[in-house]
Nucleic acid binder design. Structure first.
Lengths: 244, 244
DNA sequence: CGTTAGTTTGATGGTCCTCAAGCACTGTGG
DNA sequence: CCACAGTGCTTGAGGACCATCAAACTAACG
């Protein structure tokens, strides 16, 4: 299969583990139950019991938690190749909600299928756990950003991280990438108000660092932006193959 | 074994999965390589390659990330019964550091031993993954707190969560618990300045909600504090046995 | 052509930071 | 026994960063 024919998840995992034909076949089988969801309607609600996880094939999703006072915090965004709700499989109830940001395509993965696949192919299991560990490392980095970075650096860091993640599945580069998020999404993710997000974006644009506009992110000076954001992509652990 | 003789991890897992004698034995074997670490000297440094994880037997640890500008963000605290560095096993380098807050005792667990134990006893594997999922849910809740709660509610929520976690291993109750953290630790965990932490604690104390003083947390009005903090312990998933 | 979602800008104010200083307690060495 | 340093806690004053409120503008859409 050429990269273009592979699922984004296969493409992502292949960058870290050389998968055998058998492992690729098992992975392909996990993609069997294809489903679609429309933008804006939650796939999974906070508090709902979660029996299945999903592998995102196309489109963007966000996972978030709602508070009693109505504010929401977006925990993470999922882009093609990412798992959704992998963690919640073992907890009795999903601890957060998933909202498709655009219309999406995803493969439903039952807990039983996943556990079976893991039992059958240990190397694939390692790859999947690697992906889960990486997702968690991103949440941790997100936490650091909200706790200890000012709004400008936080935004810059966020846009850089997204770029790196998208590059891994061929949807972005150091030039920029397409991005369907609204400024409200950015606000809820970064713990800011939408108004301030707008000012921050203007600031970054006028500094000649990065432009977010009309659904597209453009890096004007990748190196300087990286320094400004103190962005060290090491936590993304994507510097080369892990297992030969 | 009576609860008092069990390791805190065994006690914690037993609250959710009824473990057989065989499983208890495998779990006990994971505790073989006992080590001690002194307060203040990092066990694992950010960027170091991590081959082993630890199970904390006694004492408190914090995991944190340092930034270029010198500020630090504490991601989580570990109390007896918690894993340390479970996630980093699969990533090439540890994405954060671990610092013992007091002198501690921990069991070193090699990646190979852990994988073997998981392969041998699927129910134990489920229990361990449950614990890992729960840890991640706590990081997510921490993220929500920093992003969307004001300083008072953030502190209140944090103290309540710690209380719940400690209660699970018999080290706390709705009355309160012993806590060796300094106000600097609280500041670095909650994304606040130490000065403001002090003011927040005074505020909570004078409101008759909770007192943090001389290494001890005292809940004055647990119900009212819970409402004030919007604390819903569901994400801790500790309402009863998961697997019979 | 009105409605809605999203963006943009201004004005005002609150939360929390920074700087600064003093206090209490502990351990150490002269 | 006392000086002194180190750690942690406490309080005050001033100001930065970001939230909130308000309103105008654009584009898409039925």
């Amino acid at each position: 299969m050429t990269p273009a024919e592979q699922s984004p998840l296969t493409r992502k995992l292949s960058a870290f583990v050389a998968l055998s034909d058998v492992e690729l076949a098992v992975l392909a089988r996990l993609h069997q139950r294809r489903r679609t969801f429309v933008a804006g309607r939650d796939m999974v609600h906070q508090g709902q019991s979660a029996q299945a996880a999903y592998i995102l094939s196309s489109g963007w999703v966000c996972s978030y938690k709602l508070q009693a006072d109505g504010t929401r915090q977006i925990v993470d965004f999922q882009v093609p190749g990412d798992f959704l709700g992998l963690r919640s499989i073992l907890l009795r109830t999903s601890d957060h909600s998933f909202e498709p940001i655009v219309d999406i395509e995803a493969a439903e993965v039952l807990a039983s299928d996943l556990l079976e696949a893991i039992a059958q192919t240990p190397r694939l299991a390692t790859a999947i756990l690697w992906a889960a560990s990486r997702d968690e490392a991103m949440v941790v980095e997100h936490l650091v950003g909200i706790g200890r970075r000012n709004a400008d650096a936080r935004m810059a860091h966020f846009l850089l991280e997204l770029g790196s993640r998208l590059a891994l599945v061929g949807m972005g580069s150091k030039k920029g990438y397409d991005c369907p998020l609204t400024q409200y999404h950015l606000a809820d993710a970064l713990g800011l108000s939408a108004v301030h997000v707008n000012r921050v974006l203007r600031q970054l644009r006028e500094s000649g660092l990065v432009t977010f506009r009309d659904g597209h992110v453009t890096f004007h000076d990748y190196t300087r932006l990286t320094e400004f954001a103190d962005f060290d992509p090491e936590y993304l652990d994507q510097t080369g193959p892990l297992l030969a």
